[in-house]
């Protein structure tokens, strides 16, 4: 068996989801080769080649791939991928965008968003917003798969010694073009990669109050998220949304503040290691999944928490400072 993993990156650095997809590839077993397609992304290729278990990296460096346009990337991946038994990509918005086109070009089905590898042709994946888990078996000769990154532990980023090989196939379509993008800029870690996530819901009452969460997040090195209710109410932008229709997160610690715990939110965070819920409604469903629940008014709790975390942090500093 030979597996092609399509790397996710921004032309400068490899996205952590790639290392997690590599972990899924290792579970399937076989030779693992990686495609890095982009523009000016040779550093990415060199770095991916160092990841554990990577045999070879193919670098397709061309303007046509700069913005990961699905029309171009899918042709490239389908062209290369016909020689492999499996093609994997992270189930990010990029992978979700081009992979089904790859599958259709190869005339095979796609297995979306796998959360475990049972064997080389059998996988588990969530359906019905995570309210059921399906075990599926693919009979296609090429298995096209997207991987839910949060369900796999990343392979080591160092230690491997794959070769980097440039490929010059260029697929450039004339029907779609990149116009522009607006990316949220934040000093805080990315929601899907953060070890700690603190999220606010409708209980935050307005967008300004989210600074209380941000203050705490900055003490903990955490990312700030939100429930769909908070996004729909216009408190915060939609890229902060945690849930089935937003980001799926699985941090070490998830703190839900003023979030009732609708199914759609739970689907996005219930695989977190430790869940804390702070809500003044003791009947809120979020408490049914929380390891630690605090029934209290968040406007009392957050300032106190900020203060206490400060003390905790200062206590742990060496006395000489």
């Amino acid at each position: 068996m030979s597996i092609l993993v399509v790397a996710e990156h921004d032309n400068n650095a490899v996205d952590p989801s790639t290392l997690k997809t590599l972990a899924a590839a290792q579970k399937i077993g076989g030779d693992i080769e990686v495609l890095v397609a982009g523009k000016g992304c040779s550093t990415v290729a060199e770095n991916v080649a160092k990841a554990d278990g990577v045999k070879k990296v193919m670098l397709a460096d061309n303007e046509a791939y700069e913005h990961q346009l699905a029309e171009n990337i899918s042709e490239l991946v389908a062209d290369l991928g016909k020689n492999y038994s499996h093609i994997l990509a992270p189930a990010t918005t990029t992978g979700k965008n081009f992979m089904p086109r790859v599958a259709a070009l190869l005339d095979v089905a796609q297995v979306s968003d796998i959360i475990s590898v049972e064997s080389d042709d059998t996988f588990k994946r969530p359906i019905y917003a995570g309210n059921a888990i399906a075990t599926v078996q693919s009979e296609d000769n090429i298995k096209v798969i997207t991987v839910r990154a949060t369900a796999f532990d990343a392979v080591a980023a160092e230690g491997g010694s794959g070769d980097v090989e440039s490929i010059d196939s260029v697929f450039n379509n004339d029907k779609s073009e990149f116009v522009g993008e607006q990316l949220a800029e934040s000093e805080r870690p990315d929601l899907t990669a953060a070890e700690i996530v603190i999220s606010g819901g409708r209980g935050m009452q307005n967008g300004d109050n989210f600074h209380m969460l941000e203050d705490i997040a900055d003490k903990l090195g955490a990312a700030v998220g939100a429930s769909r209710a908070a996004v729909d109410a216009g408190f915060v932008p939609n890229d902060m949304q945690v849930g089935q229709t937003g980001k799926i997160v699985a941090p070490q610690l998830y703190v839900a503040v003023g979030i009732s715990g609708a199914i759609q939110h739970l689907a996005g965070m219930k695989d977190s290691k430790v869940i804390v819920a702070i809500n003044k409604d003791e009947e809120a469903p979020i408490f049914q999944v929380a390891d630690y629940g605090l029934v209290a008014d968040l406007f009392d709790v957050l300032p106190e928490l900020k203060e206490k975390l400060k003390n905790t942090f200062e206590d742990s500093l060496p006395a000489s400072i």
Partner: peptide
């Protein structure tokens, strides 16, 4: 070409403890 072998209910998280403050 994709066979559905099994559908399960996901592992339920159980409610933990309430803390006082």
């Amino acid at each position: 070409t994709i066979k559905l072998l099994k559908v399960e209910t996901p592992a339920e998280r159980s409610a933990g403890v309430k803390v006082a403050d």
